[in-house]
Amino acid sequence: MAKTISSPLTEDIINELKSGDRVLLNGIIYTGRDSAHKRLVEMLNRNEELPVDLKGQVIYYVGPCPAKPGAVIGSAGPTTSGRMDAYAPILLEYGLKGMIGKGLRSQAVKDSMVKHGAVYFAAIGGAGALLAQCIREAEVVAFPDLGPEAIYKLKVENFPLTVVIDRNGNDLYATGRDKYKKI
């Protein structure tokens, strides 16, 4: 049974979520992938104010398809999180509390998550149509020149996710495999 949670995530929710939990997320999340991360971190390094305040927020690694006329957004599944590993610890230190993507994270990211109390969720890679249906509002809020890589503010409803790495550093990608590994 999936837990229903809302974003921004409270400290209590973060502490409650365990690796392997299925959740339905409601509320506001921000998109960001390779180019947007590069810019955000460059801005932080220059002590500039970010175009979106990510303190306490959740970021979704996605580059959606364009919306068809009348639609909120096009297909919008996760991209591979590992490409954001170089930037994630800096954003976590800044105050980011949740990341949504797919695929393995580095030890540095896991350590930073434990230190700062954050959660890594996976959305189903390749399920872009299903996930788009849970996005009720979408608005570009930064870097429009990046096209699909721009930062969107999304309002999601019952957005289906799995907790992969919890705030204690437990990683479903490791524990799940161990359970079924036969060679």
Binding site: V62, G63, P64, C65, K68, A71, G74, S75, A76, G77, T79, I124, G125, G126, A127, G128, A129, L130, L131, A132, Q133, P148, P160
Partner: peptide
């Protein structure tokens, strides 16, 4: 969910995956 996604894609006539 993966199977459901392919059905939604066909019904809504939108890409199965955003990539």
């Amino acid at each position: 969910d993966i199977i459901k996604n392919t059905e939604i894609a066909k019904e809504e006539y939108i890409p199965i995956c955003q990539d």
